[in-house]
């Protein structure tokens, strides 16, 4: 309850911050509309020339795009802005104040900045997912939908954990500004079904740096392609990832308070 209240307070503060600069606000809205148009255009080009991609039909691909956008919204509205703030706070020392606050530092670092302009992408993602599923003519059983939702959440957790580990590296390297660029580059690979990539890329993005877990896998669940055992494995992966991330974060904070001046 307390954390929900905190998130809503952060959200309020961030809306106020976003509205502080009028020109910036207008440009942001325009940019986001343009961005959406660009994405839809790209999609229509692909599907005017082909109807399947890596064995997936058009409806399934639209749903995949929806999941991809959902994850991307998380990146754009939370991960990118907080990374920027985090990198800066290490350099100017304001991280000290964050660490002095009586709330988990990982939580504070995750939610203190929220770019509200990308929040409406949430709605778009959901529209894409729902439309895609219906177009594919899939008769998704309630169980499929449930596993789909579960795996979307667990995919987001995996990505989030990767992010935490990446930014925590800053505690050891002092300057590591490209931390999230790596994550974004990998994530961009998740725009298309993993099956379009050569085998070695598939292995990397599924097992080594499990980006596919966040995009393709939930969709496979929706299509009913996953066995129960694999669903369990993916859920377990997300729990382990979150656990490892919190350990790395703790060690990072320890390192920070051991070394900084």
């Amino acid at each position: 309850m307390h954390f929900l209240k905190l998130i809503s307070t952060f959200l309020k503060v961030n809306i106020q911050m976003s509205l502080a600069y009028r020109a910036d606000t207008v440009v942001n809205i325009l940019l986001n509309i343009m961005w959406l148009g660009w994405e839809l255009l790209g999609l229509s080009i692909i599907f005017n020339n082909t109807t399947t991609l890596g064995g997936w039909g058009i409806g399934e691909l639209i749903a995949l795009l929806g999941v991809f956008r959902l994850i991307n919204t998380m990146m754009a509205s939370i991960i990118w802005p907080n990374t920027e703030k985090f990198n800066q706070s290490i350099r100017d020392g304001s991280l000290d104040y964050t660490l002095l606050q009586p709330a988990p530092s990982m939580f504070l670092v995750t939610f203190s900045r929220i770019t509200i302009w990308r929040m409406w992408d949430l709605i778009l993602s959901i529209v894409l997912i729902v439309a895609g599923v219906r177009m594919a003519g899939d008769v998704a059983t309630p169980l499929n939908i449930l596993t789909f939702l579960l795996l979307t959440v667990s995919g987001a957790i995996v990505l989030y954990s990767l992010w935490i580990v990446l930014i925590a590296f800053t505690f050891w390297f002092t300057k590591f500004d490209n931390n999230v660029t790596i994550l974004q580059a990998l994530l961009d690979a998740g725009r298309y079904p993993v099956s379009v990539y050569p085998a070695w890329v598939q292995i990397i993005v599924t097992y080594l740096v499990p980006i596919a877990v966040a995009t393709t896998v939930p969709l496979q669940a929706l299509r009913g392609d996953l066995t129960f055992g694999r669903v369990l494995i993916f859920l377990a992966v997300s729990i382990v990832a979150a656990w490892v991330a919190s350990l790395v974060w703790k060690a990072g904070i320890q390192r920070y308070s051991g070394a900084s001046s």
Partner: peptide, 14 residues
């Protein structure tokens, strides 16, 4: 970018 009053409220929540 925001008035101190709003930062105060954030502190109140934290």
């Amino acid at each position: 970018d925001i008035p101190a009053a709003d930062s105060f409220l954030l502190n109140q929540a934290i």
